[in-house]
Design a protein around this nucleic acid. Sequence first.
DNA 1: TGTACATCAGTGAACGCGCGTTCACTGATGTAC
DNA 2: TGTACATCAGTGAACGCGCGTTCACTGATGTAC
Lengths: 190, 190
Amino acid sequence: MVLRATLEKKEEKERVRLELLRATLRLAAAHGFASLGLREVSREAGIAPTSFYRHFADMNELGLALIGDLVGPVIASLRATGPSTEQLLGALGDEMLAAVADDPELVRFLLAERSGAFPSFRTLLREQLSGLAVALRAAFKHVNVELPPLAAHAAVVLLLDALGNALDQDATGRAVIREQLVWSVQRLLG
Amino acid sequence: MVLRATLEKKEEKERVRLELLRATLRLAAAHGFASLGLREVSREAGIAPTSFYRHFADMNELGLALIGDLVGPVIASLRATGPSTEQLLGALGDEMLAAVADDPELVRFLLAERSGAFPSFRTLLREQLSGLAVALRAAFKHVNVELPPLAAHAAVVLLLDALGNALDQDATGRAVIREQLVWSVQRLLG
DNA sequence: TGTACATCAGTGAACGCGCGTTCACTGATGTAC
DNA sequence: TGTACATCAGTGAACGCGCGTTCACTGATGTAC
């Protein structure tokens, strides 16, 4: 009983923390992360401004947590696999579409902060994306295609561009972008 | 004499306007465009906050002017030409390095707002970048290489990624990135 | 040419407002014995 | 088991501060005649 209650208290805190991250994503999609204040985010999350400090020291710390807790998993989810080159490319396109459909605000944040004003954000995202390039190499190796590191990096860059373009399109446009991504990465294979 | 004086007055206004744009770039590099206020920009530009309104209705209007007046020319400057494929690729790498060296703040703004929170900024930049892709196709056609539109677009995307990585590197790292860009675009040619 | 008027970029004072932050407090839950 | 104490997420009041915006004004320059 004691153990159970402890878990519930921690879980409640975790719930509020996650709500702060989600609130930030919702607002950042509209006005940009750098323009957000702790009061605005707290209001959106449904807590008092002073409660914000129970979770983060400032917005910068929240941003880093957002990248670690939410962006990381989305980047990891882009790791396509398949039994053949063709199916692997198809899976890559599918994962791209899925990311945009599942969590457009998170994808927007990822793309914006990759080139944004905060060096710490850029560094963290660069590391995660380079992990994605490594995974992509491994996936291609699995279907006996030797992808040089630079080509894998280029494929990731094309994938990110596709994500950005898809965000501003409806379902029809997104399907086209998926095909273009597959075509481009295919060409990169040589 | 009357004509001359008229010009001087207009030129002075143009000078202040340009200084507002430059001040915005300096500040945006550090904190992000979306976080900037008209008072902060006016202070940096050396004018009273109320004078801001003599040039722009708000920061959004200033941002669009910034893209039109300053970002456009930089994107245009990336249009490499050369008498052979090899020299064309070399020129592309050189233009990339030149842009980063000449005006890093402007390049940072371009990259950030391409995926930023303001749809109007994204649209304007996308148009200008698609012009660059068209120019790139023409340049390759000139050396008898038929570059499909999607491949030209992919080359532009790789160029932008190189710009972003170069911004965070010193001279040595930038030289490496230049080589990587040339290698990647070369591979894209097939 | 001189004179009277128009234009307009730049300004300082003032406004109401939302911001980040500090503080002391509440009350539910956890811990010790 | 009950009791006394500790922990800690959430809170409302209050603070000083910088924000965007309005306003009436200045003074240099342009224009009309």
